[in-house]
Design a binder for these strands. Structure first.
Length: 583
RNA sequence: GCGGCAGUAGCUCAACCGGACAGAGCAGCGGUUUUCUAAACCGCUGGUUGGGGGUUCAAGUCCCUCCUGCCGCGCCA
């Protein structure tokens, strides 16, 4: 058999083919190949057990028959055996393992292998999407970090990705903000830290509105004026957006995040009318208590819980713009799939949005895009409640990033004081930002996130610095070898030591991990894998010296270092984390 | 009330939509450096997977029930 990029997939096909030639198996049999516990082999097929149970037959007998039927098709690359109640174990022989590692030797090779997963698919990923006139806080980081990782993963697997930052730049907050700007602006503060001042003004306006009904009325009037196109308010709106955008850009630059489109809610404000009309025409939306709403009678909850798409005062809300946004993305960009990366509290909203879009597009004869809500848990303080500083304010993201870099810098100064100043700063940046990012990605996204400085900036265990350190050590070996490091791979002999084999086998599992990460859109699968890979490398590095005299051993160990480096760097890049040559 | 998520070692978390004796890190204890970065490696200690039933050859995972926590549920996003 041809081993291919994803060995589990190749085996799956061979096993299924062998089963189809046997009387006792039928088309309902699924081999169920997966990476195995290293004690048993490289891959295992578990599918015989449930199948045998369903047929009322002895699983070990069926497994034995299946193994016998594999015969020539599987070739001589694997050791195959039946174990336990009916598992089939496959172990790639060292020579074949070496062959696989020789073939997949560059980022291009990996990408070519992965490209089959989503080749040519056109998709939009909606993430970050902050509100204007507010600072970014710790809570904003998850959408950015997860959204960026998912974007990179899809691109890597062959998709055409449009990253769209759906900024909240239109809505009721502007009434209060413009009112406060006109009456309580501190020009000096605006000069010094514009976004800080805007945030103060918004809070001020919000507080005043709550205290004084008259102010509330005037704030509403400012909003109405803005929506009618009043010149002064339009100018203020633009100024506020400009200030916000500049502050956002700084954060995005620090986090290596770039968008292909940045169409905020305001972009859709003249596009909601068409949505209302179509939904009413198709009898999907109805009037209720003065508002335009959508109920879903077939749904246990949404038959009662309305999806409000136009408020009773006639104004649009985020449901209106979200609907218009789907239409735009499908019409203008031919999006086949749209992924929203937001926190889990918006699950109801997106379920209602998706149900509504499905009915609407079907009724209008449009292709219904695949819609996916990639949600994540809330960020909690150490008391298990919403995250706050000691003074009760949210932690600003720029402060968080700054402190992370600072703490990383202190460690660089201690561990490696002789490095040039500029390099130390770059290392501190990569480690600090990488540590924060990784801490977020390494945890299952659907869990709530208990934030603590110690955890985020920890340099031990499953963290970015641990991975970056492994990368730096490999680079260090190559630096010592000098320039002519390239010629030795062909001399490599098959792996022998436990550490060599363990590391080589871990490398072999990368395609399956990538596939799993993408199918569930859970970056922590990839994190866990990279951490285990770095761990296996560290074990190997400590036990087996790379630069030995024996040319065959030296060559195969160099090959292992190269492939480990390749997958660590490629994997970290997919997570949005920069690697280092020295640290 | 309806619904979502969660409860796994002292702490922070894994466990690939039922699979092999539940795995890491931290903390604790003990080792490893004339050798490629010790930000590392190796070993030991640590579990009634919130409680109780059930389904199965096999349950942390599925079903029922109870307890606890967080979060949604008509004009915020």
């Amino acid at each position: 058999m041809e081993i291919g990029f994803n060995v589990a997939e190749a085996l799956e096909a061979v096993v299924a083919e062998a089963a189809s030639g046997l009387e006792v198996f039928d088309e309902t049999f699924v081999p169920d190949l997966r990476p195995a516990d290293p004690r048993f082999g490289d891959f295992q097929a578990n599918g015989v057990l449930p199948f045998a149970k369903k047929q009322g037959r002895n699983p070990r007998e069926l497994a034995g028959a299946l193994v016998a039927a594999l015969g020539d098709a599987i070739g001589t690359d694997f050791a195959v055996g039946v174990a336990g109640p009916g598992f089939i174990n496959f172990t790639l022989k060292p020579a074949a393992l070496l062959r696989w590692l020789r073939i997949y030797g560059s980022g291009k090779d990996l990408e070519a292998g992965a490209a089959g997963l989503h080749r040519g698919r056109k998709l939009v990923i909606d993430y970050s999407s902050p509100n204007t006139a507010k600072q970014m806080h710790v809570a904003h980081i998850r959408s950015m970090v997860i959204g960026e990782a998912i974007s990179r993963l899809f691109e890597f697997s062959g998709a055409a990705v449009i990253r769209d930052n759906h900024i909240g730049d239109w809505g009721t907050q502007y009434g209060k903000l413009i009112y406060a700007y006109k009456h309580h602006l501190d020009p000096e503060a605006l000069e010094k830290d514009p976004l800080e001042e805007l945030e103060r003004l918004y809070k001020k306006g919000d507080a005043l509105c709550r205290e004084d009904p008259e102010v509330l009325e005037r704030a509403r009037a400012e909003l109405v004026a803005l929506q009618r196109g009043d010149a002064e308010n339009q100018r203020l709106w633009e100024e506020i957006n400009g200030i916000s955008e500049k502050a956002f850009e700084e954060i995005y630059a620090r986090l290596d995040i770039r968008f292909d489109a940045q169409l905020g809610e305001s972009f859709y404000r003249d596009k909601v009318g068409e949505v209302y009309a179509e939904l009413v025409d198709h009898r999907i939306a109805e009037e209720s208590e003065g508002a335009l709403v959508v109920f879903h009678p077939e749904h246990p909850r949404f038959k009662k819980q309305p999806f409000i798409i136009r408020k009773s005062d006639g104004a649009s809300n985020y449901a209106s713009t979200d609907l218009a946004t789907v239409l735009y993305r499908v019409r203008e960009w031919q999006a086949e799939k749209i992924i929203y990366v937001t926190d889990g509290r918006q699950q109801d909203h997106f379920q209602q949005l998706f149900l509504t879009v499905e009915k609407w597009f079907a009724a209008a004869g449009r292709a219904v895009p695949e819609l996916d809500h990639v949600w994540f848990g809330t960020i909690l303080g150490e008391d298990g409640k919403a995250i706050k500083t000691r003074t009760g304010n949210p932690i600003k993201l720029k402060d968080l990033l700054g402190e992370a870099e600072q703490r990383a810098r202190a460690i660089v100064d201690e561990k490696n004081p002789s490095l040039p100043e500029e390099e130390k700063a770059a290392i501190a940046r990569a480690i600090g930002i990488g540590a924060i990012r990784y801490a977020d990605l390494a945890q299952n996204r659907t869990s709530d996130y208990v934030f603590s400085w110690d955890k985020v900036l920890s340099l031990e265990g499953n963290t970015a610095p641990y991975l970056l350190y492994a990368v730096a050590r490999i680079h260090s070996i190559f630096a010592r070898m000098g320039e002519n490091a390239g010629a030795e791979e062909s001399a490599a002999t098959p792996f022998e030591t436990d550490q060599e084999q363990k590391l080589a086998r871990k490398l072999l599992a990368f395609p399956e991990v990538l596939k799993m990460t993408l199918s569930d859109l859970r970056p922590h699968f990839l994190c866990t894998y990279l951490y285990e890979l770095a761990g296996d490398f560290s074990g190997f590095y400590n036990a087996d010296k790379v630069l030995v005299d024996d040319p065959g051993i030296r060559a195969r160990r160099i090959l292992l270092c190269r492939r480990t480096l390749l997958i660590l760097e490629e994997g970290l890049r997919l997570l949005g984390i920069r690697t280092l040559k020295r640290m």
